[in-house]
């Protein structure tokens, strides 16, 4: 158990290392482009350029540059954005992280519960009009661009009908930290996360429906019915147990990529100061240190989430548990 945990952690570290090297190479070791000038930003004075070159060691060999960069990112955490007048980037990312986390948690709650209800309902009522309606709705949700939907939601709830009783409660755009006011936090995130969840509900409901229907043809479901289990038990207990796997793996990937900045458009539209918006700003101003920091942050999250999904897998399916670290 301990050994497998250790090896798992080692693997994760290795992957993160690989990603960091890759990212570093893309941003700082592309031949023909001087990273110094890019970090400094447009129109920086020669003194600044010289200082940056010395600080990052851009006049030294590449491995040294890499180590310096990582040291600034993870150890001394004093990587500085020059575009943004000397702001430290690591605290900035760490500040943005809880916003994104809150948003994605809410969204995940909506899309999991929504897709469970829709997916199970359309599987149980397969080929009826309910099923067809739900699947069409899902398809619509799936194909609506999230920034467009977000703008529409904003338009309706912030200006058009803001003063009707329906949307009077909607707070102005922006984020309210949980520590400041839990209720405000929930209110501020409700619409953004619902918007973000819409396209996932459609996708996940479809996946769940087809997985459930496949599972229903399995011998073990026939056994469950032969045992005298009722329909509720057969669908929810036995059926779901068999169809969890692909749902969970899909969920893990989506959750991780959203945490890592994939909710960019939603954050921008709803003016939430999360990691996605930070990435957006960094890209807009070509702020290399900030890009580096956000990408590394995203990588760490994706890797951790993957590990968690694998753990969940093993919890859900004993065969996988054994395949990985058998006796």
């Amino acid at each position: 158990m301990i050994r497998s945990f250790a090896s798992r952690t080692g693997q994760m570290l290795l992957v993160i290392f690989g990603i960091s090297v890759l990212v570093f190479c893309i941003f700082f070791a592309t031949p023909g482009a001087d990273p110094t000038a890019r970090i400094a930003g447009r129109g920086a004075s020669p003194q600044v350029v010289a200082r940056i070159r010395a600080e990052y060691g851009f006049d030294r060999p590449l491995p040294v540059q890499y180590v310096t960069m990582m040291q600034k990112l993870f150890v001394s955490r004093d990587l500085t954005s020059f575009v943004n007048h000397g702001q430290r980037v690591v605290p900035e990312v760490l500040q943005a992280a809880p916003v994104t986390l809150s948003l994605v948690l809410w969204a995940a709650f909506f899309w999991v519960s929504g897709s469970l209800v829709f997916g199970i309902a359309s599987a149980v009522l397969r080929d009826s009009w309910v099923d067809r309606l739900l699947m069409v709705l899902g398809l619509i949700g799936l194909s609506m661009p999230v920034f467009w939907l977000g703008e529409v939601v904003n338009l309706v709830t912030q200006s058009r009908w803001h003063d009707t009783f329906l949307f009077r409660w909607v707070p102005p755009l922006g984020y309210v930290p949980f520590s400041q006011s839990p209720w405000g936090w929930a209110k501020a995130l409700f619409l953004p996360s619902l918007t973000l969840a819409v396209c996932f509900i459609g996708l996940y409901a479809r996946v769940l429906r087809s997985e459930l229907l496949t599972a229903m043809g399995e011998d073990s479901i026939r056994t469950a019915r032969a045992k005298g289990a009722g329909p509720v038990r057969v669908w929810l207990w036995h059926g779901l147990r068999l169809s969890w796997l692909s749902y969970v793996s899909l969920f893990g990937l989506d959750f991780a990529q959203l945490l890592g900045g994939g909710a960019l458009l939603t954050e921008v539209v709803f003016a939430l100061p999360g990691v996605g918006r930070l990435t957006y700003q960094a890209l807009a101003t070509l702020d290399l240190p900030l890009i580096m920091a956000t990408v590394m942050y995203a990588a760490v999250f994706v890797v951790i989430a993957n590990a968690l999904v694998d753990g969940l897998y093993a919890l859900l399916d004993p065969r996988i548990r054994e395949g990985r670290h058998g006796r």
Partner: peptide, 22 residues
């Protein structure tokens, strides 16, 4: 349903797939 499993019970050809694997 109340009879199934209590009054009458059934076993199947392939015991590997007949049990829930998880």
């Amino acid at each position: 349903r109340r009879l199934r499993g209590a009054g009458m019970a059934m076993i199947f050809q392939d015991p590997m797939t007949a049990f829930l694997p998880v």
